[in-house]
């Protein structure tokens, strides 16, 4: 049991080393996020009313886009240099690898975005009382996005020709998430009902994720 826990601990230490010691990757993602906000503002025009009306939608769209940028790092690098096989040989099942990877993606890629939301709210002139709702919806929605990213990037491990397909899959399945989480922010009276719908989606995706991505990982490792 203790050796199993220490294996998990060393797994997360490795992920921490990979993701945060090369901090410029995440910093590049966050800078991509802010530069896209600038471009959105310049293309719409700097009127305060318009921007605060559609600001929440812009934040969500760009969070989705910039989290699909890091999709390639999800399994592909570990698959190509053989680390995925080593994890499997260390006694982790395929489904468990996908759960671990999903949480590490959430911790090391999505949480830095959570910290950059307040600055984005200042830039986009979003009201202060809405920031809490934005935080709450993004904390759940980003975990859903991590699960979807795990599914789509494990599907595209053996796909050498068309890697954009992975981000397409994430974007297709994230449509209901965006609908409900933007709804949370714009209709504060329905906060708890919409939040429970979002948590329900999270539970569905979270229960599908180990099965689907574990099966895809198994297929790709066995037929490589």
């Amino acid at each position: 049991m203790i050796s199993f826990l220490s294996k998990i601990g060393s797994f997360y230490y490795r992920e921490y080393k990979l993701n945060l010691s090369g901090f410029q990757d995440i910093l590049t993602n966050i800078i991509f996020f802010f530069v896209s906000i600038f471009i959105f503002i310049f293309s719409i025009g700097p009127e305060k009313e318009t921007i605060s009306l559609i600001g929440v939608g812009i934040v969500w769209t760009l969070l989705l886009l910039s989290s699909t940028l890091s999709l390639r790092k999800f399994y592909q690098d570990d698959f190509e240099n053989g680390n995925l096989l080593l994890m499997r040989l260390n006694g982790f099942s395929y489904g468990f690898i996908s759960i671990l990877k999903t949480f590490s993606h959430f911790l090391f890629v999505q949480v830095p975005f959570l910290l950059s939301i307040p600055i984005a709210c200042i830039l986009l002139n979003i009201a202060n009382d809405k920031v809490v709702y934005l935080f709450a919806s993004f904390a759940i929605g980003s975990l859903i996005l991590s699960c979807l990213g795990s599914i789509s990037s494990s599907m595209n491990l053996m796909n050498q020709r068309n890697f954009l397909l992975g981000s397409l899959i994430v974007m297709i399945f994230s449509v209901p998430i965006i609908i409900f989480s933007v709804g949370i922010i714009n209709m504060e009276k329905n906060f708890y009902s919409l939040m429970s719908v979002l948590v329900g989606i999270l539970l569905i995706v979270f229960s599908i994720n180990p099965w689907a991505s574990g099966l895809c990982l198994k297929l790709s490792l066995e037929n490589n």
Binding site: M155, M158, N159, Q160, R161, N162, L165, I169, A212, L215, C216, L219, S220, N223
Partner: peptide, 16 residues
């Protein structure tokens, strides 16, 4: 159209 390996392709499509 985009997978090379047929066995992986058909199973991944079924999962999708």
């Amino acid at each position: 159209l985009s997978f090379e390996n047929r066995i992986v392709k058909e199973k991944v499509i079924a999962i999708f």
